[in-house]
Write a protein that binds this DNA or RNA. Structure first.
Length: 364
DNA sequence: AATGATACTCGGC
DNA sequence: TTACGGCCGAGTATCATT
């Protein structure tokens, strides 16, 4: 029987700032991504639980958060570089407890701990992890333990912050049934609406709905995926991840349709991204530009070229793509970005999505 | 039929 | 009432090539 841990660092960015700045300890903390175009333009990246109690949450415009704040509330700009380096240290700790390990984001990971043999053993391990993270990094994490990644993730979310939730195999169905569909990983606003139209609000209703009925509005694939989720079915392994793309995006000082103004931004972002390309010894085959219009409509335009790692190839491709895009579209541009994908690594092992899937099918 | 390229949507953090 | 970041990955549809 598999035993999977999902570990999630609690309001990670805010916890890191609280840890390194004595003067803000115990206060509501809001970590902000400022776009730079006006004083408070931007969005909230995360807020600690004291700030959440005021109704402030991730994704909210900063000006809105400021209206909800009290005089104690601290607003800080995100220091992503610092967060990434601290994350790397914590992930090493997580990994040291696992038979196999999978980092899923800057503050989350799956640990296969099947060698614990019993849930009691896994629980003990989880408590050791929590203790070490508290001691070494001064923060809490929430942990879920379950027979697979899907349920472990839901379990870690069940009690936060500083939670530990264990879902035994025999309890999976009951655990999921108690939740609303939007608590399922991968079910957001659009899917909630689609399901509501079918009269489905609870995970239990989704689990009981026939595949045929779901397929009619959601399509075959999504229907099966959703139903599996509702039933707690997930055989996906805990495996190391390879990056599949790399991107940088930024907000322009003012909305514009001027080629030079937009290209200047893309040039700057490309140079930053290229540093990471060099550092990671990454090659790429596809270059894309990302354009967000003033009404927030998103566009991407890409082209695939010979395997390369050169900044020049990024810039030349981006220039061509941007020219073509502006010829076709008469839009005011708010944000612009650059992306490389179809990544190839130095050892020659290609890691496109297709190949990886093929490999996983083979391994099954 | 399989594979790849492209443009796009959805969702998480 | 409006307000609005910077990433990442999964997945879909469609068309072209082999």
């Amino acid at each position: 029987m598999r035993i999977i841990i999902h570990a999630d660092l609690d309001s990670f960015y805010a916890s890191l700032e609280e840890q390194r700045k004595d003067e803000i300890k115990g206060k509501p903390i809001v970590i902000c991504m400022f776009s730079g175009r006006s004083q408070d333009s931007g969005a909230v990246a995360t807020a600690n639980y004291k700030a959440r109690a005021l109704g402030i949450k991730a994704g909210m415009p900063i000006v809105f958060a400021k209206r909800r704040a009290n005089s104690d509330t601290v607003f800080l700009p995100a220091d992503l570089e610092y967060y990434r380096s601290e994350s790397a240290k914590i992930m090493e700790v997580f990994e040291s407890y696992a038979d196999s390990f999978q980092q899923v984001s800057i503050d989350e990971a799956y640990l296969d701990v099947s060698s614990c043999d019993s849930l009691d053993g896994a629980e003990q391990k989880a408590n050791e992890i929590k203790e070490e993270i508290r001691k070494e990094f001064g923060m809490t994490c929430s942990i879920g333990i379950a027979p697979n990644k899907l349920v472990a993730k839901m379990a870690s979310r069940f009690r936060k912050p500083d939670g530990l939730t264990i879902v035994e195999e025999k309890d999976v169905k009951g655990f999921l049934a108690s939740l609303a569909v939007d608590k399922l990983h991968g079910v957001g606003g659009k899917t909630v609406e689609a399901l509501a139209a079918l009269g489905i609000k609870a995970v239990s209703e989704l689990a009981e709905c026939t595949l045929e009925k779901l397929e009619r509005t959601l399509g075959k694939n999504k229907a099966r995926l959703l139903k599996d989720k509702a039933l707690g079915i997930d055989d996906s392994p805990v495996t190391g991840q390879v990056a599949k793309q790399m991107s940088r995006i930024g907000t322009l000082k003012d909305d514009t349709k001027d080629f030079s103004a937009i290209y200047e931004k893309i040039d700057q972002l490309s140079r930053e991204m290229h540093k990471k390309i060099v550092k990671n010894k990454t090659y790429f085959r596809t270059v894309s530009i990302i354009i967000i219009a003033s009404d927030l409509e998103a566009f991407t335009r890409g082209k695939t070229i010979e395997k390369t790692n050169k900044l020049e190839d990024v810039l030349d491709s981006a220039k061509e793509l941007l020219k073509d895009f502006l010829d076709e579209h008469d839009v005011m541009v708010r944000r612009a970005g650059i992306r490389v994908s179809n990544l190839v690594y130095e050892n020659g092992a290609e890691k496109t999505a297709e190949r990886k899937e093929g490999l996983q099918r083979f391994l099954k």
